Lab assay of single mutants.
Amino acid sequence: VIAMPSVRKYAREKGVDIRLVQGTGKNGRVLKEDIDAFLAGGA
């Protein structure tokens, strides 16, 4: 999974398994917005 360390930390704090999140950034990078969208109700 491609993600910046700050995004990985954010996901950990929110209790999200970053491997389950679909990245929308360049080359499938997971963004902070992707974590929020995942929490809001889905992949």
Rank of each mutant, 00 (worst) to 15 (best):
V1R: 06
V1S: 08
V1Q: 09
V1E: 07
V1N: 08
V1H: 07
V1K: 08
V1F: 06
V1A: 08
V1P: 10
V1Y: 05
I2Y: 05
I2C: 08
I2D: 09
A3C: 07
A3F: 03
A3R: 05
A3L: 04
A3T: 07
A3N: 05
M4N: 15
M4H: 15
M4R: 15
P5A: 15
P5Q: 12
P5F: 07
S6I: 09
S6V: 08
S6G: 11
S6A: 13
S6Q: 10
S6Y: 12
V7A: 05
V7S: 03
V7D: 03
V7L: 05
V7H: 02
V7N: 02
V7K: 01
V7F: 02
V7Q: 02
R8D: 06
R8I: 15
R8Y: 14
R8A: 08
R8G: 04
R8H: 14
R8Q: 12
R8N: 05
R8E: 10
K9P: 01
K9F: 08
Y10M: 03
Y10W: 04
Y10A: 03
Y10R: 03
Y10T: 02
Y10F: 04
A11N: 00
A11H: 01
A11D: 00
A11K: 01
A11W: 02
A11E: 00
A11Y: 02
A11S: 05
R12L: 15
R12G: 08
R12V: 15
R12W: 15
R12H: 15
E13P: 01
E13A: 12
E13Q: 14
E13R: 13
K14A: 08
K14V: 10
K14T: 06
K14P: 00
G15H: 08
G15L: 06
G15W: 05
G15F: 07
G15E: 06
G15M: 08
G15Y: 06
G15A: 06
G15I: 04
G15Q: 07
V16I: 10
V16W: 01
V16Q: 01
V16F: 02
D17P: 06
D17I: 05
I18M: 06
I18G: 01
I18W: 07
I18S: 02
I18H: 03
R19K: 11
R19C: 06
R19G: 09
L20P: 01
L20D: 09
L20Y: 11
L20G: 07
L20N: 10
V21P: 03
V21I: 11
V21R: 01
V21C: 06
V21H: 00
V21M: 05
V21K: 00
Q22I: 14
Q22V: 14
Q22F: 12
Q22A: 12
Q22R: 15
G23T: 03
G23Q: 03
G23L: 02
G23A: 07
G23I: 02
G23H: 03
G23P: 09
G23R: 03
G23N: 03
T24V: 03
T24Q: 04
T24F: 04
T24S: 13
T24R: 06
T24W: 03
T24A: 03
T24E: 02
G25T: 03
G25D: 03
G25E: 02
G25N: 02
G25I: 02
G25A: 05
G25Y: 02
K26V: 12
K26E: 12
K26I: 12
K26F: 12
K26P: 15
K26M: 11
K26D: 10
K26W: 11
N27Q: 09
N27H: 12
N27R: 10
N27D: 13
N27K: 11
N27S: 09
N27V: 05
G28T: 04
G28E: 04
G28R: 07
G28N: 08
G28V: 02
G28M: 06
G28L: 05
G28F: 06
R29M: 13
R29I: 09
R29V: 08
R29Y: 08
R29P: 01
R29N: 08
R29S: 11
R29L: 11
R29A: 13
R29E: 15
V30I: 14
V30L: 05
V30S: 00
V30W: 02
V30Q: 02
V30G: 00
L31E: 09
L31Y: 07
L31T: 13
K32Y: 09
K32E: 06
K32C: 07
K32N: 06
K32I: 12
K32M: 12
K32T: 07
E33R: 15
E33L: 10
E33N: 10
E33S: 15
E33K: 15
E33D: 11
D34I: 01
D34Y: 01
D34K: 00
D34S: 02
D34N: 06
I35K: 00
I35H: 00
I35T: 00
I35L: 04
I35A: 00
D36L: 06
D36I: 06
D36R: 05
D36T: 05
D36Q: 05
D36S: 04
D36N: 07
A37D: 10
A37G: 08
A37F: 10
A37S: 11
A37V: 10
A37I: 09
F38M: 07
F38Y: 15
F38W: 12
F38K: 04
F38V: 07
F38S: 04
F38R: 04
F38L: 07
L39S: 06
L39E: 05
L39Y: 06
L39A: 07
L39G: 04
L39D: 04
L39I: 14
L39R: 07
A40R: 14
A40Q: 13
A40N: 13
A40M: 14
A40P: 05
G41P: 09
G41A: 14
G41E: 12
G41V: 13
G41K: 11
G41S: 14
G41D: 13
G41C: 09
G42E: 13
G42W: 11
G42M: 15
G42F: 14
G42K: 13
A43F: 14
A43R: 11
A43D: 13
A43P: 13
A43L: 14
A43W: 14
A43N: 14
A43I: 13
